[in-house]
């Protein structure tokens, strides 16, 4: 079969299967992003707290998830959570087996990795904002929460954006690992196609090109966000 047939959408081609893989990859990355950002934000808050125990607790989190290989984190979450929840459930109803959804496991594992790196980016962004900004906020009568939301966060986004863009590109690449726990992402779908058709180079080449396309698309989108965020900037 020629390349056009192999990649066509239809019963004889693999185009639709691979397109589904792209959907899964993009969905996973998009679902992980808010989770990772939110957790990373709170970890960063903990790291710049004046309370020593809070700083230590946040640093332990970062040390663990920054130091473990992403693949191992994924297995720890996938098998570990499965065993843990199963034992918990068996306390009430013995003999049940629990299966963890691969998508959720991937989201938690990648989110943990993303958040530990994001907390470092956000922490350095926090440090780049002068104290006077907080004091100014309090001086005009804003509460702590309002100061955060109206004054600090908009500046934080602008400063942290390049670092977070980098993390997003890394996240897209890391999603490739979930193929190992059976989620049908780009790598898994192209892998199946490669095994069936014996055209491994073609299909894994297509996988690489798809990831490249995602990276290029992301760069364009992130560039647009960067321009939007810096629009009213004061030329830092």
């Amino acid at each position: 079969m020629d390349v056009a047939t192999l990649l066509s959408f239809g019963p004889r081609g693999w185009g639709d299967e691979i397109a589904w893989g792209v959907v899964v990859t993009v969905t996973l990355a998009l679902a992980t992003l808010p989770l990772g950002l939110l957790v990373g934000f709170f970890i960063a808050l903990g790291k710049q707290s004046e309370e020593k125990s809070l700083r230590l607790a946040a640093n332990i989190y970062t040390t663990i998830f920054r130091g473990l290989p992403e693949l191992l984190t994924l297995f720890l979450v996938f098998y570990g959570a499965q065993i843990g929840i199963q034992q918990f459930v068996r306390l009430f109803s013995p003999g049940t087996t629990v299966e963890i959804n691969a998508f959720v496991a991937g989201m938690i594992a990648l989110g943990a990795v993303f958040s530990s790196f994001a907390s470092e980016v956000l922490l350095s962004a926090f440090r780049a904002i002068p104290r006077g900004q907080y004091e100014g906020g309090y001086a005009i009568g804003l509460s702590h929460f309002q100061t955060m939301r109206l004054i600090i966060l908009p500046q934080l986004v602008r400063i942290a954006l390049p670092g977070l863009s980098n993390l997003w590109l890394i996240l897209i690449k890391d999603t490739a690992l979930v193929s190992v726990i059976g989620l049908s992402d780009i790598i898994r779908q192209t892998g199946v196609a490669a095994r069936v058709t014996k055209e491994a180079f073609l299909f894994f080449g297509v996988a690489c090109l798809l990831y490249l396309a995602l990276a290029i698309l992301s760069s364009v989108a992130l560039g647009a966000i960067d321009r939007w965020a810096g629009k009213e900037g004061v030329g830092r």
């Binding site: 590109l169 490739a176 690992l177 180079f201 990831y211 490249l212």
Partner: peptide
């Protein structure tokens, strides 16, 4: 721009 896993597959399986 591409995952290391995809590159490894491309070389190990693909060059086959």
């Amino acid at each position: 721009g591409t995952p290391l896993l995809a590159q490894t597959f491309l070389i190990y399986y693909g060059l086959g």
